[in-house]
Design a protein around this nucleic acid. Structure first.
Lengths: 208, 208
DNA sequence: ATTACTAGCCGTCGAGTAC
DNA sequence: TGTACTCGACGGCTAGTAA
């Protein structure tokens, strides 16, 4: 089938039927030549992935059954890869986390975006890396903007609203990290360690 | 980046970390040569999509941050393409549908798989083609097997459990069609036309 | 403006093979 | 068994251009 997947996705993003576009527009969007787009669209039409009416003024494209099925199959595959349980287990790690000081610097934004001011200390929880990646992928990330003071720069954070043993909390990941580590840092309005009576190595339940 | 997407997805299907495999196995699965897999894996490692430890006994692959982010981005894109509202509108079409006779032939399976015996007549509803495709994609399809009698063959059906104005029903699509048309056929335990007091061109709400 | 052909360049593929 | 190199062949890419 050649490499028509990227083009098919690009088209689908514009709609599934009656897409008005041109080979030149598409070539710019996909950073390739007008000729390549033209050739690929002809191919895709021969493969019955799409149907077109093209003129010297541009073209109108419809994604056909076969094309939609192909995209759907891909969607399902990725869905399965990232699908996770609704909750995962983790073990409390020692230390209150060095995060306490940093947490205090983002309070206004936490209040605004997460709906609570955070207790100045993070709960460190050890999880299974694969599980935490999948778990997090299905949650909408909340971005906390970075800022600069006279002294130094505080980077952006990505937060995921979760519950720790049913207590509303949030996983906090520095944006430069970009991805969850095995050990995650959790904040909450309460002192989770006290409220939930947690000790090192105790297992907790992290849910959506 | 070349065409490494397919290979990355194949790897991800095996897991995100500590994937034990070999270039030969992968080449068979992806119907390409061992050499191509080897070259692509080297490329992907250079691009920091994966990390590997390879020996003469095979290899262990870990998908790295960049690779996971790349897959996630793709997943989100497809998700947006197929994401739909939880309900769509449709307009009642004239005619009871020729489906009445056929419906009666599948009753046992309807009872078993859908949980009801169907009123022998289908409700034809005109919808927006694009919306119905997206709506249906998020519902788990239920397959009704085809069968052959002395006289003729009855093909397989794909059903999607839905509600029409809150009344439990199912969209029925002959499998050979494979995809929703603009006009869909709906069955229910009740005579929907009577129960819901529907007339031609009246708008109905189709929900999950 | 467009689409899509032809021609020639260039990159990707895989057989052969070393380790 | 393995991985991964070299290198010839083949196919995809884009410049030029017709319509």
């Amino acid at each position: 089938m050649g490499e028509n997947y990227t083009l098919l996705v690009k088209l689908a993003q514009k709609g599934l039927s009656n897409i008005e576009t041109s080979t030149i527009k598409l070539s710019k969007e996909l950073k390739t030549s007008q000729q390549t787009i033209s050739r690929k669209l002809v191919e895709m039409e021969n493969n019955e992935l799409i149907k077109r009416t093209s003129s010297t003024k541009g073209m109108v494209i419809n994604i056909e059954e076969k094309g939609i099925t192909y995209l759907k199959k891909n969607y399902q595959t990725l869905k399965e890869i990232f699908q996770s349980k609704d909750s995962i287990k983790g073990k409390i790690q020692s230390g209150i986390g060095e995060g306490g000081y940093y947490v205090s610097k983002y309070q206004e934004q936490f209040q605004k975006q997460l709906g609570f001011k955070a207790f100045p200390g993070t709960l460190n929880v050890k999880t299974n890396k694969e599980e935490i990646i999948k778990f997090i992928t299905t949650i909408t990330p909340i971005e906390i903007n970075g800022f600069t003071t006279k002294e130094r720069t505080f980077g952006s954070l990505i937060c995921y609203k979760i519950k720790v043993n049913k207590q509303p909390s949030a996983i906090v990941i520095p944006e430069r990290t970009r991805h969850a580590k095995e050990i995650i840092e959790i904040i909450s309005s309460k002192n989770l360690r006290k409220t939930l009576k947690l000790k090192d190595n105790v297992e907790v339940n992290i849910s959506k």
